[in-house]
Write a protein that binds this DNA or RNA. Structure first.
Length: 279
DNA sequence: GCCCAGGCAAACT
DNA sequence: AGTTTGCATGGG
């Protein structure tokens, strides 16, 4: 087995970035913070140890630099986006608190399956279910980690086969997703180029995928940065912060703004204080 | 015990 | 077409 520490780490320079915010804000569920502050985990089939030193991100992994540059969305100008978000007074506190977040470009299937599991669930438990899913059905990738199982691996299984995951009623949703993706009734590869509404409708053909899960998958797994996933929680927060709705200037980066608001409001449940920027 | 959790489907008015 | 209810499970 290859020792990750023997590889010379990839270095990415990302001004204003926060690795911890990005990996812990509830968009990806496979990263664990270590005692030394580094993160051990995997994206798709790639294991990695990632740490932050100032503005530099150090990545120990056998995956190519191009893979991680894409994963961390290095081609997008986040400083410009932060300025746009922070220029809206109601969002300035959220941007100040959570402005280090980048929206990761995760594997589409992994994002879809992860957010199917997320419904009516909490982040801690979601993480556990996904870990068991990978351990049980994914290929080992070293270090005790396993790749996220591809849809082909799940398509032939029954809900009973997924019982060890303790995913409850979501098991049959996962299997339906795997079957439709492998069977061709849902074409994941086509989603990035489709208009958001059409891509959403495509994903909602899957049992257990409603608008919220579809929008999360599109935002985090298919590059639809204009998606603004709304549930009761964020809907209420938004209604208080932005009674007029999302300003048009935010449309292209709505997903990033949403993620900042989500992270901020989760850390600061007192809406009055959040609104006043006193968290 | 109780309540909640990055919702959704099915069964109701 | 809008509203309510059940859902499986674990953590606080």
């Amino acid at each position: 087995m290859q020792q990750l520490s023997a590889l010379s780490p990839l270095r990415l320079c990302l001004p204003g970035f926060s690795l911890a915010q990005t990996l812990c804000c509830g968009q990806a569920f496979r990263w664990r913070e270590q005692e030394d502050g580094s993160f051990l985990g995997a994206a798709g089939a790639h294991r990695a140890v990632i740490r932050q030193r100032g503005e530099e991100i150090l990545i120990e992994s056998d995956a190519s630099p191009a893979f991680w540059e894409n994963y961390f969305d290095c081609r997008t100008d986040y400083e410009a986006i932060r300025r746009t978000v922070a220029s809206i007074p109601a969002l300035e506190p959220a941007c100040r608190f959570a402005g280090g977040i980048r929206v990761l470009r995760q594997d589409g299937w992994e994002a879809l399956a992860s957010f199917i599991i997320s419904q009516n669930n909490n982040i801690k438990r979601i993480t556990g279910i996904i870990e068991r899913l990978c351990c049980q059905f994914g290929e080992p990738i070293g270090g005790g980690l396993c790749a996220f199982p591809p849809p082909e691996r799940l398509a032939g299984l029954s809900p009973e086969d997924l019982a060890p995951l303790r995913s409850g009623f979501r098991a049959r949703y996962l299997i339906d997703a795997a079957r439709q993706v492998t069977g061709g009734t849902v074409d994941l590869a086509a989603l990035p180029a489709l208009p958001t509404a059409e891509a959403r409708a495509e994903l909602m053909k899957i049992v257990g995928v409603g608008k919220k899960v579809a929008d999360c998958a599109l935002l985090f797994g298919f590059g639809h940065g204009d998606c603004f996933p709304v549930d009761v929680w964020i809907g209420r927060a938004l209604a208080e912060l932005l009674p007029e709705g999302l300003p048009p200037s935010l449309a292209p980066c709505a997903g990033i703004a949403q993620q900042m608001i989500f992270h901020y409001m989760r850390a600061c449940p007192d809406r009055a204080a959040a609104k006043a920027g006193e968290c």
